[in-house]
Design a binder for these strands. Structure first.
Lengths: 179, 179
DNA sequence: ACCTGAACACCGTTCAAGT
DNA sequence: ACCTGAACACCGTTCAAGT
């Protein structure tokens, strides 16, 4: 049993049941082994989840050719959209992205490409690094807002809307009107 | 023992040991009672944490007078800064803000004030609601990036910097140069 | 009526024992 | 050498029993 199979299975389970509900026993069962076996590949649950995050970031497809001949604003937009498209495929895993700084190989490759890209546009290096971090956080935040396990499924939005609408309009006029 | 005391103690413990480490037993001990007693006030841990979030949001100080005579851009900036100043006082509680939609009374008051403010500047109501959500997520994301329990204390930043610097410059030239 | 000790089912993690 | 059943200390939650 290789490490990749473990990570893939973990990601699949997270997509299905949510990151909160993922259990090492559940993962071991899905792999046909016991929990103790997992510790032969990972130091603990946190390390496993870090690998899952890097696995997700490996799905970001952004070739250098795709940004050829673009202005820096266009290139940043293309990059942000590539990240967003990857994140939206794993809404249940989004909480992992905000609680971790991605230090895995795939995360580093993305960081390298993005910062290199900005340098190519003449950005000073410290600004490039800061901009990368800020944009990354913004995209993750936006993805969580759009998808993301606020409560449950896609019916979460209407639920919340109904809740706002049920408030006293005298106390919360703007909120109820907006709902 | 009133509910407010429980929430205050929970927030204090979170500030001290982090949201991950907070335990109902720990909280009960700090209050001089048992875990079962907590369930007389809250349906479960999630509900308690929702109250903690609302307690934090109650600390946002933004009087209508503070935004008198400002342009909408200035007013939004003042509001965002008021939220940021509150959040930075509770770095260990920040993960709660991203995993919850704040539906407590204080959160709703903030929402009401902010949306009402934007309406006063002539914003269409659906745009005002969307802008409020987007800005809220952006501020939370920024606060997590600046403070926030990525790994540990304030020495996390230097640690990460050292890690980036330790990478192979041949493979990651831009990342190592930026560090 | 209000509180709570003690139990329940579960978790992540470890380790001695198996092959 | 590699794997793992069974245990460990702990968690959130419940409930019968106390006052």
């Amino acid at each position: 049993m290789d490490v990749g199979k473990v990570i893939d299975t973990a990601l699949k389970l997270i997509d299905d049941v949510g990151v909160q509900a993922l259990t090492l026993r559940m993962l071991a069962d899905a792999l046909g082994s016991g929990t103790a076996t997992l510790y032969r590949h990972f130091a603990g649950k946190d390390e496993l989840l870090a690998h899952v995050v890097d696995r997700i970031l490996g799905g970001v497809r952004l070739t250098p050719e795709a940004v050829k001949g673009l202005t820096w604003r266009e290139a940043v937009t293309v990059g942000a959209e590539a990240l967003y498209e990857t994140l939206r495929r794993h809404p249940n895993a989004l909480p992992l992205l905000v609680s971790q700084v991605p230090v895995g190989p795939n995360g580093l490759v993305n960081r390298e490409r993005a910062i290199g890209l900005l340098l190519g546009f003449g950005f000073p290096i410290d600004l490039a690094a800061r901009a990368f971090t800020a944009i990354g956080h913004y995209v993750v935040g936006f993805a969580i807002q759009q998808h993301g396990p606020g409560a449950a499924q896609t019916d979460d939005q209407p639920q919340l809307r109904d809740y706002y609408r049920s408030l006293d309009p005298a106390t919360y006029p703007a909120t109820t009107a907006a709902a």
